[in-house]
Design a binder for these strands. Structure first.
Lengths: 247, 247
DNA sequence: ATTGAATTATACTTTATAGTATAATTCAAT
DNA sequence: ATTGAATTATACTATAAAGTATAATTCAAT
């Protein structure tokens, strides 16, 4: 990878294409960095249909920065990771990074932004008021688990480096978490009402479910004996047991 | 409190006594700082039976530093908390801190050390091979939950600022965690063997239990509607349900 | 081949903060 | 009251790391 960045103008379409394909495989860190942050260069007109290659290159480099940063932030923590190390890892120097991102925090924000978007989409699609409580709960837990596993790097960063985020982002994230908790609570309440669940204190129960699922980020290993799907499936069993589902 | 530290030689026995009493109430941060770290002053002979007041004062000040540091580390994170802020909060200056602790990390270590000792004691007293699995599991979860709540500040710091710890401490803490996980796993296995539990994958189940319990540190509120005991009690219900206990 | 714009490196400034030398203060004991 | 030891503040140094001015390079298009 390094080589593709050093002397980056050597990049050709083939490399970009290879990246485009990879994109769909890479789990978390690489996705889309649709240059919402403009390059420092004054004119952005140049980035149109005509020279799309430039744009792709720009986005590609941002991806690389994000990918490396995610790995380092994850392993060392946000504050403990210096831009010089990120640059060194990429085989470039600091101004390269500052050309593609406003500052260090901007990188972190982009990483979390993307995770949040993904998470949001996953939960937005669940209506807790229709369907049987058991089905909905199962669906929620499964989706939740898969998202946590998929976004485990960002999840870890969030729980650790939350303090380094600006207030509005923090609130946004906390709001999403609350949303999940509320959905869980609501489903459990419905289950208790219609007699399909038997559990006390649905609020605390939902916090415990959320904890159990979120905790996965601390122990999941990509090379472990279980696949994400298997884990998610088992997780739903545990949760349904926990809420005392009628068998 | 501030006042007791500023112009500290104004302290009298009464204050120290008040502190001694308080000591047993304060949950986590204040306990014993038995000056294992010697003061920078060359001679430590002076700290004997004769002038016990000096020693008590010294320890008292260490307590204050630990207490304030814990609060700040907890709210802002270790790296983001500067010694100047700690000093300011105490109404003193930096050398005051350096006189009582070797350095910043030393403060963090003392905070965690104490938590770890406490946790260790709690789990050392549980024999997972005798007694019925249900009883043991219940006992484990209850103790575990209470410890997490009691040491939630340190627990949070550990999961967040782990990177800032020296390797040996990290290992020690992780070992303790593993110990708990193993104990949980063993009990669940025993329960499955003798037919009192009905759950798959005891290893993953124990990770989930540990996660559910540990997660408490993120949502427990001292002024919340439930007491630690109530929470611990409910937690055991959830867990026993989760492992499919025969009713 | 030449040129202006975009990109990146060199080498710098700035800032934040851990840590410390030294002087001033306060103590306990005579 | 005096004195040496313990304690703490003032004011500093050292250092790491974020961020940037400027020059050099490479690009795309003629």
């Amino acid at each position: 990878m390094k080589e593709y960045i050093q002397n980056v103008y050597g990049i050709d379409e083939a490399v970009i294409f290879a990246y485009e394909v990879n994109k769909e495989i890479l789990e978390e860190t690489v996705n889309m960095a649709q240059s919402k942050t403009k390059p420092k260069a004054k004119s952005i007109k140049g980035r149109g249909a005509k020279n799309g290659i430039r744009n792709k290159l720009f986005d590609f480099k941002r991806e690389q920065i994000l990918e490396v940063s995610a790995r380092l932030f994850y392993h060392r923590g946000f504050r403990a990771t210096t831009l010089d190390v990120i640059a060194e890892e990429l085989g470039v120097t600091k101004p390269f990074i500052y050309y593609h991102f406003e500052n260090k925090r901007d990188i972190l924000l982009h990483l979390l932004e993307r995770t949040m978007g993904k998470s949001h989409d996953v939960f937005a699609g669940v209506d807790v008021e229709s369907g049987t409580p058991a089905e909905i709960l199962k669906d929620l837990v499964k989706r939740f688990t898969l998202v946590v596993i998929e976004t485990r790097v960002s999840t870890a960063m969030f729980w650790r480096d939350e303090k380094d985020l600006p207030l509005d982002r923090k609130d946004k994230i906390r709001e999403m978490k609350r949303d999940v908790d509320n959905k869980l609570t609501r489903v459990i309440e419905r289950g208790i009402e219609n007699g399909s669940f038997d559990v006390k204190d649905p609020k605390m129960a939902s916090l415990c479910v959320a904890g159990m699922v979120t905790w996965t980020y601390t122990w999941y290993q990509a090379d472990g004996r279980s696949t994400p799907d298997e884990i998610a499936e088992r997780m739903t069993e545990y949760v349904l047991n926990m809420v005392g589902i009628r068998k």
